[in-house]
Design a protein around this nucleic acid. Structure first.
Lengths: 207, 207
DNA sequence: TTTGTCTTGTATCTTTTGATACAGGATTAA
DNA sequence: TTAATCCTGTATCAAAAGATACAAGACAAA
């Protein structure tokens, strides 16, 4: 089970592999499960071994996406909490059947100075995540909603390797901190501009 | 010169102190100096020993603040670049006379697994900065400009410990990625709501 | 087939933010 | 003191985004 994880993260030290096996535990979650609540003390770092988790912020009836966690990805917000204990400011909900590796925070911290591979893993995660978040921040600051929605849809289509994405308008609204009506309106505009084609729970990118 | 820096960061290892003294260099900058350009390869980590530096993003004629660096603070974006080399996406400009400690990136990386104090310094910087940036992101996503401006002014007044801050409207606009006219209008509204009192290049918080 | 729920389209009105233009006060340097 | 520059107030118009309400199509379950 952990083999692919070790390989992906280049965890070669046998001692560390043993430590992980002894101190971490695996958990299984089904779609809709709440992985992280807001305002919750953080006791374990969660790494997605397999599956998909949505991490987002909520304010009243609005939501905004922070990031998705896919295979062998770590929630940087939890990693951050390992080094300065604090409460969670986000929610995380399972999208598809997901396998999680749970590592108690004190080990995450200890190992980062003890094992080179773990050190590199934490540093790289911080480094990459910081840059990703910075991009989101600038995009949010400088681009209009219409542009952001279009970029999102095109990137999503790209990742999934076909030009149609399946998603309701409400769901899209929840990625951008806005409401369904606004998204419907923008999508209609983009369709009139011949950039998209809309269907029931579907958006097709026109190239 | 480095004494306060070592103390603040709890750098007690004599060997590390020597390494820093041998490999890093100090530079002095006056107000207006450009410390980091956009799209520039990053060769050194810059730590503000004394002074004040403004780090921001630019897009056409708009600017948005990322953060200020004050005494003994590190530019996290540069730190991030030490672990995955990349170009700068921000600009940094000196606000007041500033003394900078410059450390070549390869040392920053090496030391983080060699010296405990340096390890802790980098990890804590990442951890704190990630949370700060996350807060900025959520605030930008959910709060209107008026609210953000008011929060900014009140926090600024708080930090400086008196209720009047000295800043032109243009300057404020550059913190929020908007234009001067918009800021003037919002400030006027806030004044009418009896939350602020405006003067020439001055904003007074009413408590 | 029918019923209820989910999803989408759209109209109307309001608020927020942006763009442009101009005038007058404040400040600074000559 | 004068001239130039910087800073602020404000008017007008446009665009973007939010709030609310309603209708109709699609879909799923009974």
């Amino acid at each position: 089970m952990l083999h692919g994880f070790f390989k992906k993260l280049k965890i070669t030290e046998e001692e560390l592999q043993t430590e992980i096996a002894n101190n971490a535990y695996i958990s299984e979650h089904k779609k809709g499960d709440v992985l992280i609540k807001e305002n919750e003390y953080i006791k374990v770092l969660k790494i997605v071994i397999k599956g998909r988790v949505r991490v987002f912020q909520e304010s009243e009836d609005r939501q905004i996406l922070i990031y998705y966690l896919n295979d062998i990805e770590t929630c940087t917000l939890l990693l951050s909490a390992c080094f300065q204990d604090c409460k969670s400011t986000v929610k995380a909900i399972v999208e598809d059947q997901t396998t999680i590796l749970n590592i108690p925070v004190r080990h995450v911290k200890d190992w980062s100075f003890k094992y080179k591979s773990w050190h590199d893993f934490t540093m790289n995660t911080f480094s990459e995540s910081y840059n990703v978040l910075m991009s989101s921040y600038t995009e949010l600051a400088f681009n209009g909603l219409k542009e952001r929605v279009l970029i999102y849809i095109m990137e999503e289509a790209n990742e999934q390797n076909h030009c149609t994405i399946s998603m309701s308008h409400q769901r899209l609204a929840n990625e951008f901190g806005t409401t369904r009506v606004v998204i419907s309106r923008l999508l209609k505009q983009l369709e009139k501009e011949n950039l998209l084609k809309l269907g029931q729970k579907q958006v097709q990118v026109i190239r």
